[in-house]
């Protein structure tokens, strides 16, 4: 697998797939997609990078430990549940902030942050599993 062609293509593939995973994540509310699927796509992207450049390469590229990504995702998801409490509504009542920016309609919402949290947990946890399985003591 470790051919020149693969090693050359892998970074581009990874970048594209990561971008695509974010696209799938964000469009999830209205079209097929969402945090879980997006997360899985991103994990595949890292897997491809890992096959080409090894675990150490992925770890360098991620900067932080994948488990930290998962943990921050869980934190974000839980935090997105709380704002409704301060407004005296039941927990998890979704909050929406819609506005126009340079003519584009933008809708920010707590479910969106929740979904980003899901995405990060999936990315972090499964990447962590895959990387630690792939890792060898010799690495």
């Amino acid at each position: 697998m470790n051919t020149v062609i693969f090693r050359t293509v892998a970074p581009f593939l990874t970048a594209l797939m990561t971008l695509f995973s974010i696209f799938v994540l964000l469009r999830g509310h209205n079209e097929p997609g969402g945090g879980f699927i997006g997360g899985l796509i991103a994990v595949s992207a890292f897997a491809i990078y890992g096959i080409a450049y090894g675990v150490a390469g992925v770890r360098r590229a991620l900067h932080v430990h994948p488990m930290s990504i998962a943990a921050s995702g869980l934190l974000l998801a839980v935090a997105s549940v709380l704002p409704s409490l301060f407004l005296g509504q039941p927990t998890m009542t979704s909050q929406w902030l819609e506005f126009s920016l340079f003519g584009t309609h933008i809708a920010l919402s707590t479910p969106m942050f929740f979904d980003i949290g899901v995405y990060l947990v999936v990315v972090g946890a499964i990447t962590s599993i895959a990387l630690s399985l792939e890792e060898r003591e010799s690495d």
Partner: peptide, 15 residues
């Protein structure tokens, strides 16, 4: 505010 029912269930109704 979502057209994808599956996703709405996941992140909102059954969040």
């Amino acid at each position: 505010h979502g057209r994808n029912i599956v996703n709405v269930i996941l992140v909102d109704f059954r969040g």
